[in-house]
């Protein structure tokens, strides 16, 4: 059995990011390539941050999902160039992040608005947050802290 590459992409879009389960690994932009080499399916994955501990889990989750869909011969490779950028986050992914309470990345370097109350009266607490890809901000109107997905 050799499913179409487009179908494989839809399967991968069902694999959640292990730390931000509302978005898929495809939304995150870390699946860089899917293609068949004879009867072997080759998937290229790029790490978000070089030390991100989720990277290995993501590769395992991808492998499990594809095997569940009947792919037997499978090779997952790590591709570091070009380096991952938040520009690769999908629009769907950005919307879901906001609904989940995480402000999506912006080129301007900070969140556009509080994901809870939409206020723009914001303050950065730290460049670092609960995972390597996030920073810690707070809203000075609703007084809630929130995560901001860093722009890199």
């Amino acid at each position: 059995m050799k499913p179409d590459v487009a179908e494989v992409w839809t399967w991968l879009d069902q694999v959640p990011d292990p730390e931000i389960p509302v978005i898929s690994v495809v939304d995150l932009g870390i699946v860089r390539d899917v293609q068949w080499a004879d009867d072997e399916l080759c998937v290229a994955v790029t790490p978000t941050y070089s030390g991100c501990p989720a990277t290995r889990v993501i590769s395992m989750d991808i492998e499990t999902a594809l095997r569940d869909h009947g792919v037997d011969k499978l090779r997952i490779t790590t591709r570091i160039s070009p380096p991952w950028t938040t520009d690769w986050l999908s629009d769907k992914g950005r919307d879901r992040l906001t609904e989940y309470g995480i402000a999506p990345p912006r080129a301007a370097g900070g969140p556009a608005a509080c994901p809870r109350c939409n206020s723009t009266n914001l303050d950065r607490i730290s460049q670092f947050g609960s995972t390597p890809c996030k920073a810690h901000w707070r809203c000075k109107d609703c007084l809630e802290p929130f995560d901001y997905f860093k722009c890199i």
Binding site: S50, I125, S126, F128, S130
Partner: peptide, 20 residues
């Protein structure tokens, strides 16, 4: 806490770079 998280994340980046 914020500094603890920041330092741990910095260490993580550095160790990830070490792997490469």
């Amino acid at each position: 806490l914020e500094e603890d998280i920041a330092l741990a994340n910095t260490a993580l980046d550095l160790i990830g770079q070490t792997q490469m």
